[in-house]
Amino acid sequence: MSKPAETKVTVPMLTVTDLKRVFDVSAPWLNRLLEGKGRSIVRAVDGVNFSINQGETFSLVGESGCGKSTVARLIVGLYEPSDGSINFEGVEIGSSVERAKHPDIQGRMQMIFQDPYASLNPRWRVGDIVAEPLRFRKLLPDNAAVDKRVGELLSQVGLSPLDARKFPHEFSGGQRQRISIARALAGEPEFLVCDEPTSALDVSVQAQILNLMKDLQRKLGLTYLFISHNLAVVYHVSDKVGVMYLGRLVEWADTQTLFDRPLHPYTRMLLDAIPDLDMTGRSRTPVAGEVPSPLNPPPGCSFHPRCPLANERCRRDVPKAIAVEGGAVACHAVEENRLPPWKAQAAA
């Protein structure tokens, strides 16, 4: 405490090290035996490293099947990692055994899901849904206190305390997502994992939810892990961004750095693909090809079949992350200094 403020090192709230998760998607044993096929393994998350500081929003972006949602589910404990560590404020919670030793930590993290129509039990009243964490953890002495708290929570997310008596089907998609947020906030968590919370919503409702999430973050000092495929949304909400491709983190950086000076060719491709509202006549070069099947990823850098800069080494070796200003990137082209300048830089 005697140290001056400027030398204080911020300890990350969550640190993920070499996180891996494989899924066995093989056919049943008998089928494999008869058809003479081997096991098929999907490396959904293949060695991911990042850390999130208190009060920050860290976003993971990528196309479908890149493993971003799996990372989210690994962190909240819906899946168990195949390898690697998840460290929450110095406590290891990777394996389910370790996680079970720390129910307090499980209580400090919560999740908001993508589909507001599937994330609320259709047979429960809204009040019971929101109160579930309170009742299960016995956080409050009696029912009257629970009801009062549920009313507060509903008001906090912009609904009426009277809505507690209704059923989920009486609400629109945006309102359901508010209920989902109220439930997540009930146990007063500090860390929220948001898995595509607005991608099922219309733009005007998306704006409401994003504003609400930002307001809550400011008011309650929340830390977010934000999962999305929408770069514009990510740009708007996050402090740091990680870009995932086929189970690996190919680049991460401060939001401004990443969007101003993207390094990895895949990041550049994603930025290029954002439809241009300003219609400045920017020339777009859609990258050919599609995401390869995660069942059979290409060797070396998994992006090389689509990459304009790929060479022999890219086809052979998996690139290691190298630190750059404001973040890190895993690309041989960056390492070998043969990356063309990005448009914004070229124009300047």
């Binding site: 196309e63 479908s64 495929h229 929408n230 770069l231 491709m269 994603l270 290029d272 693909a273 954002i274 439809p275 777009r284 859609p286 990258v287 050919a288 599609e290 995401v291």
Partner: peptide, 11 residues
């Protein structure tokens, strides 16, 4: 479709 494919289809 995914973002990068969207751009291809629109073009």
């Amino acid at each position: 479709l995914d973002v990068s494919i969207q751009a291809q289809i629109i073009q």
